[in-house]
Design a protein around this nucleic acid. Structure first.
Lengths: 222, 222
DNA sequence: CGGCAATTTGAACATTTTCAATACGGGTGG
DNA sequence: CCACCCGTATTGAAAATGTTCAAATTGCCG
């Protein structure tokens, strides 16, 4: 069952969800400003102050996150297309979480976070709260298996660093699945991490002993 | 940089985002009803009519999606914890997209979709619209590499089925990354799919020729 | 004190990655 | 308009890594 992203192409603000919810066509004014980007251009970079929120009207944008300290890794993370928002992390974080690059010519509209903030209405409104919680969830989520993320040991180390607190709750076999490996492989990876002194292991618990070692093995910044 | 999910444990409705945005403590009433689940219990199943939206106050819930037709594959997809919403797809789809199972004892609160609908306020309000677009995005997204999703050919076939329209836009090397493989492997997988007659391949485009063959190779329902 | 289910371990087997070399396709400059 | 260049995609063969399958271990629960 494939959910339609958008019923039809967005050609005018009256057809655009953003425009419509701003009341365009009924005397309202949409605070988002049309922009265009060529294929290859960046909209924003990971780590940069999150100043503007974007809405994609037409085109394809690629989100990526540096996977290595040197910025070498080009971890593509997701594709955003017609009808998607970009940079919503501006609502809940000071900086962009990933870099956004147009991979086709793109038509979008954008607005400064302050504008978006008031456009969205009171912080306490249920819809606003749900939106923020959802963003928080999306951007907090352990970076998925993006790219051949190195070997199993590295993936497990990375996961323990970001999502370690659930390590005790979630049965091994599910954790393995989340990490894209079979339970046997997870088991061996944990054994390895234990041997290196990064964690303390019992059959049903994992405790981080030395986060620094873990970070080294994960090969990530932070 | 790790974003905090929640500042403190949720012990009363006054401290709960859902409660606060319902005006609890200021004369308001929260429509969400407290529930508890034991470890192992399911909250809902994939494919079932999406009737209620949940909010996790305390505990860990695992989202999974059947990966094979026979429901055999137990593809864990994500972990939801304190402060997360569950079943938000009810806003935009008739059925749940994945199954939710408590992996610890869980405290949550839930409300029927009709209630949530009016609680969230007008469908045309910006925040509501943004929330829905975001949900749409999340649930439309190509099912990430969850579990050892079979071999490269299967992963690529599956991706072409769900996200195929971007196949032409996004440079191969990024697609490879999104699928958790190196470009060389993607190249070989595409060559294979082409040999099987499922797709037509040029150096920079991919066109689906026979979706049925593709589905067979992907080994999924739909 | 058994019995069960999940996890761990071992060894053979598949698949993917790596590394290096080659083929394309598009853009550039003549 | 055509030849040349450059970066991306493809192909091949060896090496590394993960999976599979079977067996042993462990901890929990009755």
């Amino acid at each position: 069952m494939r959910l339609p992203i958008m019923n039809e192409a967005i050609t005018s603000c009256v057809m655009c969800p953003v425009g419509r919810s701003s009341g365009v066509g009924h005397g309202g004014h949409c605070p988002f400003i049309d922009r265009a980007r060529q294929a290859g251009e960046f909209l924003y970079f990971e780590g940069e102050p999150a100043t503007t929120v974007w809405f994609v009207k037409r085109g394809t944008v690629l989100l990526s996150r540096a996977t290595r300290e040197d910025g070498g890794g080009d971890g593509a993370r997701a594709v955003r297309r017609d009808g998607h928002f970009l940079g919503l992390e501006a609502l809940i974080a000071p900086t962009y979480v990933d870099s956004a690059r147009a991979v086709t010519a793109v038509k979008l509209c954008g607005a400064p976070i302050e504008t978006v903030d008031s456009w969205l209405g009171g912080r306490d409104a249920p819809a606003r709260m749900a939106l923020e919680q959802t963003c928080r969830m999306m951007y907090t989520e352990a970076p998925r298996a993006a790219g051949p993320d190195g070997n199993a040991v590295r993936r497990v180390a990375r996961w323990l660093l970001t999502d370690g607190s659930t390590a005790g709750d979630v049965p091994r076999r599910f954790v393995a699945n989340l990490l894209g490996m079979v339970p046997e492989t997870l088991s061996r990876a944990l054994a390895q991490l234990s041997k290196e002194g990064a964690i303390v292991l019992t059959r049903r618990t994992v405790r981080v002993r030395d986060a620094q070692v873990l970070r080294t093995l994960a090969g990530t910044p932070e």
